[in-house]
Simulated assay, not measured.
Amino acid sequence: MPEPQPVLAPLTESAVFLTLVVEPGGEQAVHDFLPDLGGVVRSVGFRMPEEGLTCVLGIGSDAWDRLFDGPRPARLHPFREIRGERHRAPATPGDLVLHLRAARTYPCFELARRITGALGGAVRVVDEVQGFRYFDRRDLLGFVDGTENPTGAAASAAVLVGAEDPEFAAGSYLLVQKYLHDLEKWNALPVEAREHAVGRRMLDDVELSDEEKPTDSHVALTTIVEEDGTEREILRDNMPFGSIERGEFGTYFAGYAADPGVTERMLTRMVVGDPPGHSDRILEVSRAVTGALFFAPSADFLDAPPPRVTPPQPAQEEPTRADLGIGSLRAT
């Protein structure tokens, strides 16, 4: 089994999420950098092992075809906008995503600076979010986030690609979204209304009983159970973020899964509703402003990526005598 990127690393206190686009003509520089990524991470993290610095790099569908020749991950595709009667999950540009985690922000910042510096003009940053861990792992809405994340073997099974796509085993699909919250509207709601929107008690983080929990609560709509009773899981590494200057307060959603269809089903149930029109109550105060899907290949893949696609060259026409500077010979 190849070595995965650190998608299963423990939740941290700080994170930086960078979404990049590869500029036209920058493909070779990005391809050449991939084997160097691990060394850059080690060069920063070695000096501060207590920070637990990690980096996950994901590659989007369009960029994959520009960077590599040969097969591609079986379930990789561009993120498709999801639209319901009143809400939507937009699709926004993104060729690469960097998910940097550490105990404090400055190692993430230094690593982000070095990576983007190495890539130079080959890429352009289109979104940057610096996340922080809030009071006892709560989001800005006041609820503990990530309570139902799988652990141990269950986490590996939920997150890492296996025998179903052996050429890309140990990879993971990463779906990211940036949500902005209307905290004034949210905080004006009674605590009971907020608990019914989420599906958990606010104080002790206990899930509401089936009798108490509304069917359009966040917990109810993001719980996927197959007909045979199997619950489908993903790994969430969401982070709060905010800007006092811009008046922006939100949650950055980062969901890892072996099958991106599971995450997309959750989002569809949230936005469209189940049944349609019965959408997630949280979306009354929270809206997605970005959305993109990436594949985070194994560390082994990044260390020795497949060759890059070579664009076809235009056919060369045979030179004429005039092109060669040879005049016509005429008998005089």
Rank of each mutant, 00 (worst) to 15 (best):
residue 58 G to Y: 11
residue 168 F to I: 01
residue 11 L to Q: 13
residue 81 E to K: 14
residue 3 E to Q: 10
residue 139 D to Y: 01
residue 33 F to P: 13
residue 305 P to W: 09
residue 18 L to P: 02
residue 212 E to I: 02
residue 149 N to I: 00
residue 146 G to E: 01
residue 45 G to V: 07
residue 230 T to P: 01
residue 96 L to C: 15
residue 281 R to F: 05
residue 327 G to R: 15
residue 86 R to S: 14
residue 59 I to V: 13
residue 71 P to R: 09
residue 154 A to W: 01
residue 173 Y to S: 06
residue 180 L to T: 02
residue 284 E to V: 00
residue 187 N to S: 05
residue 264 E to M: 13
residue 168 F to L: 06
residue 58 G to T: 06
residue 226 E to C: 02
residue 99 H to A: 12
residue 50 E to C: 02
residue 70 G to E: 14
residue 135 F to D: 09
residue 132 F to N: 04
residue 227 E to H: 07
residue 60 G to D: 09
residue 151 T to S: 03
residue 182 D to Q: 11
residue 207 E to L: 13
residue 322 A to L: 03
residue 176 V to M: 09
residue 17 F to N: 11
residue 37 L to Q: 06
residue 149 N to P: 00
residue 141 L to M: 15
residue 64 W to R: 05
residue 323 D to N: 14
residue 149 N to V: 00
residue 75 R to K: 14
residue 217 S to W: 04
residue 331 A to M: 10
residue 228 D to M: 04
residue 224 I to T: 05
residue 35 P to T: 10
residue 292 A to E: 15
residue 154 A to Q: 07
residue 325 G to P: 12
residue 299 A to L: 07
residue 269 R to N: 15
residue 226 E to T: 07
residue 269 R to T: 13
residue 119 L to V: 08
residue 266 M to A: 09
residue 102 A to S: 15
residue 22 V to D: 03
residue 113 R to G: 02
residue 56 V to Q: 15
residue 151 T to H: 05
residue 64 W to E: 06
residue 149 N to W: 00
residue 210 D to I: 06
residue 159 V to T: 12
residue 168 F to R: 09
residue 195 E to Y: 04
residue 117 G to Q: 13
residue 306 P to E: 12
residue 113 R to L: 05
residue 320 T to D: 03
residue 315 A to P: 07
residue 84 G to T: 12
residue 43 S to V: 06
residue 313 Q to R: 11
residue 162 G to L: 00
residue 18 L to T: 03
residue 224 I to Q: 02
residue 321 R to M: 12
residue 96 L to D: 14
residue 4 P to V: 05
residue 8 L to P: 07
residue 286 S to I: 05
residue 74 A to S: 13
residue 166 P to F: 00
residue 82 I to G: 08
residue 248 E to F: 12
residue 289 V to N: 06
residue 250 G to Y: 12
residue 318 E to Y: 09
residue 78 P to R: 15
residue 224 I to D: 07
residue 7 V to A: 08
residue 38 G to Y: 05
residue 205 D to I: 00
residue 12 T to Y: 03
residue 145 D to Q: 04
residue 191 V to A: 13
residue 308 R to M: 15
residue 165 D to M: 01
residue 270 M to R: 10
residue 276 P to H: 11
residue 205 D to P: 00
residue 48 M to C: 10
residue 286 S to P: 01
residue 41 V to Y: 11
residue 212 E to S: 01
residue 161 V to Q: 12
residue 241 F to H: 08
residue 148 E to S: 08
residue 144 V to M: 08
residue 4 P to A: 04
residue 187 N to Y: 14
residue 139 D to F: 02
residue 140 L to I: 05
residue 304 A to K: 15
residue 132 F to A: 06
residue 227 E to S: 08
residue 122 A to N: 04
residue 55 C to Y: 05
residue 37 L to T: 10
residue 135 F to S: 12
residue 126 V to T: 15
residue 69 D to P: 01
residue 74 A to I: 06
residue 283 L to S: 02
residue 306 P to G: 07
residue 8 L to G: 12
residue 155 A to C: 06
residue 40 V to E: 15
residue 140 L to F: 03
residue 24 P to W: 03
residue 187 N to P: 04
residue 143 F to V: 04
residue 209 S to Q: 01
residue 30 V to H: 09
residue 252 Y to N: 01
residue 147 T to Q: 10
residue 90 P to T: 11
residue 53 L to S: 01
residue 10 P to H: 13
residue 41 V to P: 08
residue 326 I to A: 02
residue 226 E to N: 11
residue 100 L to T: 07
residue 279 S to H: 12
residue 121 G to R: 12
residue 141 L to G: 15
residue 297 P to D: 08
residue 202 M to T: 07
